[in-house]
Simulated assay, not measured.
Amino acid sequence: MTDRPFYVLLGPDGAGKSSVMAEVAARLPGWRTLSTDDAFLEPSHALLGALRRHVVEDVLPNLGTSYSADFLASLLQTAVVHLKDQVERQDGNAPLLMDSYYYKILAKCRLAGARQNPMYTWWRSFPRPRAVLYLDVSPATAWRRSAAGARLNPLEHFGERPEWLGFEDYQKSLRKLMLEEVRDVPVTIIAEQPSVARTTDAVLEVLAP
């Protein structure tokens, strides 16, 4: 366990977490932001971005044939362990805002077919955040942000192709599983806002009132 203060920004696909994290970093220079997205990765951690691209380009198109759901979960665990390692290496008392932690990955692994896996017990033993900030967004808004499915990958919708009904059903299921996973952690739900700036304002009211 760690007593270093950290918070988790969580939300469905298309919630705008990366944009909000960039805005938080600009407005709260004393805070550290942590994500496995390429824009936030240090050069020494470029491997994580490469692995994510291989998951999208090589594994997901062949999931259920060449690769199993458990194999997918094993690859995604690299991101989970990286986030844990970064929390435990945090210096001093500088607060940290983290993208999703293991919560979203675990939910997506379950939706991909890896419903039970011994890794999940380990993930759930990781340090707990002080709070989770859940960016709520309607599936309709997220669908619009994805250019009507053009920017989606297979871990963001049900069905072979990105269609509205499969996307809506997936996002509702994802939301349910993520909120179940954080039920024992303090959660603040940030209602959908009209802009990144307004969403960031709502997040900062919780992080730095």
Rank of each mutant, 00 (worst) to 15 (best):
R4W: 09
E156P: 07
A73S: 03
R130L: 11
Q116W: 07
I105E: 10
L177T: 06
A25D: 13
K104L: 08
R27S: 15
H45Q: 08
L179A: 07
S138E: 07
W123S: 04
W143A: 10
S125P: 01
A197T: 11
R130P: 04
K17L: 03
A107H: 13
C109P: 09
A142T: 01
K172Q: 09
P129V: 03
K108Q: 15
E192K: 11
A15W: 06
G49P: 12
G11N: 01
V187M: 01
L133N: 01
L96K: 02
L10H: 01
A147S: 14
D37F: 06
S195C: 07
V196F: 11
A39G: 15
S19Q: 14
L165W: 11
G159W: 05
M1C: 11
L96I: 01
P95D: 12
W31F: 15
E163V: 11
S100K: 05
G113F: 01
V20T: 03
V20C: 05
I189S: 05
L155N: 15
A202W: 07
S100R: 09
H157A: 07
L76F: 13
L72Y: 02
M21K: 12
L106P: 09
K104T: 05
L133Q: 02
Y67S: 03
N93Y: 10
P154M: 07
L47G: 13
R115G: 03
Y102V: 14
K104E: 05
L204F: 10
G92V: 13
R151K: 14
P12W: 08
E88T: 15
A25M: 15
I190P: 05
G16A: 13
P29I: 15
F71A: 10
G113N: 03
A15E: 08
K17A: 02
A46T: 14
F6A: 05
E205D: 09
Q86Y: 14
L165Y: 10
L111Q: 02
E23T: 10
V182T: 12
A131V: 04
G14I: 05
H45V: 07
P209H: 04
D37E: 05
T121F: 04
H157C: 07
R89H: 09
M178R: 00
F167G: 05
V196D: 07
D91S: 14
E181S: 04
Y170L: 00
L133I: 03
E156N: 05
V182M: 08
P12M: 12
P209W: 04
G11H: 02
Y120E: 00
K108G: 14
A131D: 06
D201M: 06
A131R: 06
R175F: 02
V206P: 00
T121S: 09
S195W: 08
A46W: 13
A131G: 06
D3A: 10
P61I: 06
F158C: 11
R115S: 03
Y102I: 13
V56S: 06
D169F: 10
Y103E: 14
G30P: 15
W143D: 08
L9I: 03
E23C: 12
T2Q: 11
C109Q: 07
